[in-house]
Write a protein that binds this DNA or RNA. Structure first.
Length: 570
RNA sequence: CGGAGCGUGGCUCAGCCCGGUAGAGCGCUUGCUUUGGGAGCAAGAUGUCGCAGGUUCAAAUCCUGUCGCUCCGACCA
C-alpha cells in the first residue's frame, strides 16, 4: 500500500476528549474516529490491525475445535423472555421497532440464539460435543461509554458457546477454551493473565477473566505473587482471620452517642471503640425487599459477592427515607439487635462469626449497643463471605500477602451449566434413551477492546509500539526523495515488491514530506520496522533498517530484504 | 441516573469575570527557498462562537432552557 493512496490522518496533538494513552493514540495515529459517544469508525489502519487480531482468534478457535457461524444482530424478544434475560439484562439491551411496530433487540451476546439453534438442530449425544463461535458486532446500551473502544455502545466481540453431554465433558471444553485464550493473547503480544471471576448477568457457576494489567483498567484484581492465586476483587477471598472472640461479655448495654453517625467517630474519644470491634449495619434493597447486611466496622461490603451469594438480581443501597420507617432510626445508628422486623433477612459476613464484645447501632438515633455477641444477640439468616479483600491480606492459598492492581478485562470464559439449555429446550437423547439438557459454556473476547489493550500496553513517548503479529503493516519503507526517477524511490518500489512477494505487509511512504514528518508519523503509527532510503546512506550503497524500539542498522542495499525478513520472522 | 467539568475554523486553545471589529498556534491552498527527526518567508481560504429562547441600543461574553462531549460512581467483552 502506498501512503498517499490510503487515509492515515495523524494528529500532532491529542483531541481533548481522549483521556488515556491508548485512546489518544488510536486517534492520533489515525486508527479510529468518533462518530458519537461510544460509536467509532475504523479507519484503514485501525481496521487492518483489528482484522489481524480477529484472524489470530479465528485460527486458535478453529484449532481448538470450535466452528464459526454468524448469528443475527437483530433478535426477537421472545427468546430473551424465554431465557429470563429480557428482564435481567434489560438495562443493556438496545430495543428497536420495525415499521410494523414489532420489537427487536440488538444482540449484546447470543446465548439465546445459539441455544435456540441447537434446540432445533442437535438431537443426539452423537452430535455432541459442539462449540460454535462468531466474530460480530455487539450492541450494549452502556450507561457510560468510556475510553474510546474500551467500553463502547457498539463493539466487536468473539463469542463462543460449547455444548456437551456431561459436566465433565463441559469442563474439558472449558479447559480447551481457557488454553486457546492463553494462546490468543500471547500471539497478540499481550501480557494477559487469567483470574477467577464472578459470573454476573450471563450466569453460570465457574468462570475466569483474562486480564491485561493497566492502570487505566476498570477492574481490580487481587493476586499472589508467591502461589499464582488471582481473582477479580469482586470474587477474591483471603485468609484473613475471623474476629477474635473474647470472654463472654455481659448482656448488651445501650449507651448514648449523640451526633455519632460514623464508624470513625465512634472509634474516637470519648467512646474509643476500635473499628474492628464494631458491626456495620447496611440496609440494602435486594429484588425489592429490604435486607440487613452486617460487616465488620473496618471492612467494606462487596456488593457483587452479596448478589452472587444470595442470588439477588437487583441490588442497591436503601435510601434514608426507606430505612427510617423500617428500623426506626437513621443511618449511623443502625443495628440488627433490636427492632428488626421478623421478615427482614439478616446476612452477615463470615469474619464476624463468633464475634462478641462488639458495638453496633441501637436502632435509636443517638444510641449504640455494646457487649454485643453476634450469635447470641442477632438472628443472622445466613453467613457469607461478603467483604472486599484489601492489599496485604494473607493469600487464601499460601498465606503470603496479596497484592491488588488495576486491569483491563479482555476475555471471559464461563461454565454455564444447563441454565439456558433447560429454559430454551436444548436437549439431546443420550445413549441410554434419556433426554437431557446440554451442558453449556460460553466464552467471550472483546476484540476491539483487545486491540486497544494492545496499544495501552505497547506505546512510548513517540507513539504506538505494535507487536509484529497485529501491526497494520509490519514494514514501512521511507524514501526521503519521492520523485519517480530518484534512486531512493526506485529502490523503495523494488523493496516493496520483493517484501510483498514474500508475504510481508508493507506500506510505502510516498508522501512528498520532509524527513522529520515522515519519521515522526511512522513512529506515531508504530510500524515495527522502518527502512529509510536517503541520499547519504545510498551514496555508501546502504540503507537503514530501524526496528521501532531499537537502534537502526545500516545494511548493504543488496542485503536489505534479507535483513528485514530476518526481523519479520524473529 | 447521581456528582464534576467542557462546547469558539479540521486539531489544540485564548477571548467570557468587566457586553461594543471573532483571535493565536498547528493543519489546509498558492508561490519561492529548504530537504536525515514535526522547516522558513510571503500571500490566501476556512467560524450562523453547540442549539433555542430571554435581557440589552448592542450578546461568544449576562440569564433560562435544551442538546452534545469528557471525567468520577453503578454496569460489562
Amino acid at each position: 500500500m502506498k501512503w498517499t493512496q490510503t487515509l492515515i490522518p495523524t494528529l500532532r496533538e491529542a483531541p481533548a476528549d481522549a483521556e488515556i494513552v491508548s485512546h489518544k493514540l488510536l486517534l492520533r495515529a489515525g486508527l479510529i474516529r468518533k462518530l458519537a459517544g461510544g460509536v467509532y469508525t475504523f479507519l484503514p489502519l485501525g481496521l487492518r490491525a483489528l482484522r489481524k487480531v480477529e484472524n489470530i482468534i479465528r485460527e486458535e478457535m478453529d484449532r481448538a475445535g470450535a466452528v464459526e457461524v454468524l448469528m443475527p444482530a437483530l433478535q426477537p424478544p421472545e427468546i430473551w423472555e424465554a431465557s429470563g434475560r429480557a428482564e435481567t439484562a434489560s438495562n443493556v439491551l438496545f430495543k428497536v421497532k420495525d415499521s410494523s411496530g414489532r420489537q427487536w433487540f440488538l444482540s449484546p451476546t447470543a446465548e439465546e440464539v445459539i441455544t435456540t439453534l441447537t434446540a432445533n438442530e442437535i438431537n443426539s449425544y452423537r452430535q455432541l460435543p459442539k462449540n460454535f463461535y462468531q466474530i460480530s458486532l455487539k450492541f450494549r446500551d452502556e450507561i457510560r461509554p468510556r475510553f474510546g473502544l474500551m467500553r463502547a455502545k457498539e463493539f466487536i466481540m468473539k463469542d463462543a458457546y460449547s455444548f456437551d453431554t456431561t459436566d465433565e465433558n463441559a469442563m474439558a471444553a472449558y479447559k480447551k477454551m481457557y488454553d486457546a485464550y492463553t494462546k490468543i493473547f500471547a500471539r497478540c503480544g499481550l501480557k494477559a493473565f487469567p483470574v477467577e471471576a464472578d459470573t454476573g448477568v450471563i450466569g453460570g457457576n465457574y468462570s475466569h477473566e483474562f486480564m491485561v494489567p493497566a492502570d487505566s483498567g476498570e477492574n481490580d484484581v487481587a493476586y499472589c505473587e508467591a502461589c499464582g492465586y488471582a481473582a477479580n476483587i469482586e470474587k477474591a477471598t483471603s485468609g484473613i482471620p475471623k474476629t477474635a472472640a473474647r470472654e463472654i461479655g455481659a448482656a448488651t448495654e445501650k449507651f448514648a452517642t449523640p451526633g455519632v453517625v460514623t464508624i470513625e467517630a465512634l472509634s474516637k474519644e470519648p467512646y474509643k471503640v476500635p473499628a474492628n470491634r464494631q458491626i456495620k449495619t447496611l440496609v440494602y434493597i435486594a429484588d425489592a425487599k429490604p435486607v440487613l447486611i452486617l460487616i465488620r466496622g473496618d471492612d467494606q461490603l462487596n456488593e457483587t459477592k452479596f448478589a452472587a451469594k444470595t442470588g439477588a438480581v437487583a441490588v442497591r443501597p436503601a435510601t434514608a427515607e426507606e430505612i427510617l420507617p423500617l428500623l426506626g432510626a437513621k443511618p449511623g445508628s443502625l443495628g440488627a439487635v433490636v427492632n428488626v422486623p421478623a421478615d427482614v433477612k439478616i446476612f452477615a459476613d463470615e469474619r464476624l462469626q463468633g464475634a462478641n464484645d462488639m458495638t453496633t447501632g441501637a436502632n435509636e438515633d443517638g444510641f449504640h449497643l455494646k457487649n454485643v455477641s453476634i450469635e447470641r444477640d442477632i438472628k443472622v439468616t445466613a453467613w457469607f463471605d461478603l467483604r472486599t479483600v484489601s492489599a496485604g491480606e494473607p493469600c487464601v492459598k499460601c498465606a503470603k500477602p496479596l497484592k491488588i492492581r488495576r486491569a483491563i478485562e479482555v476475555g471471559h470464559v464461563f461454565k454455564l451449566g444447563t441454565k439456558y439449555s433447560e429454559k430454551l429446550n436444548a436437549t439431546f437423547l443420550d445413549a441410554d434413551g434419556s433426554r437431557k439438557p446440554s451442558v453449556m459454556g460460553c466464552y467471550g473476547i472483546g476484540v476491539t477492546r483487545t486491540l486497544q489493550a494492545i496499544i495501552e500496553q505497547g506505546n512510548d513517548k513517540d507513539g504506538v509500539v505494535w507487536p509484529l503479529s497485529v501491526a497494520p503493516y509490519q514494514v514501512c519503507i521511507t524514501p526521503l526523495a519521492v520523485t519517480p526517477d530518484s534512486q531512493a524511490m526506485q529502490l523503495a518500489e523494488k523493496f516493496y515488491a520483493e517484501l510483498t512477494a514474500q508475504g510481508v505487509d508493507v506500506i510505502l511512504d510516498d508522501r512528498d514530506e520532509r524527513p522529520g514528518v515522515k519519521f515522526k508519523d511512522a513512529d506515531l503509527v508504530g510500524f515495527p520496522i522502518r527502512i529509510a532510503l536517503g541520499e547519504k546512506s545510498l551514496a555508501k550503497g546502504e540503507v537503514e533498517i530501524k526496528p521501532r524500539t531499537a537502534a537502526f542498522q545500516s545494511v548493504k542495499i543488496e542485503d536489505a530484504v534479507e535483513a528485514v525478513m530476518k526481523l519479520v520472522k524473529a
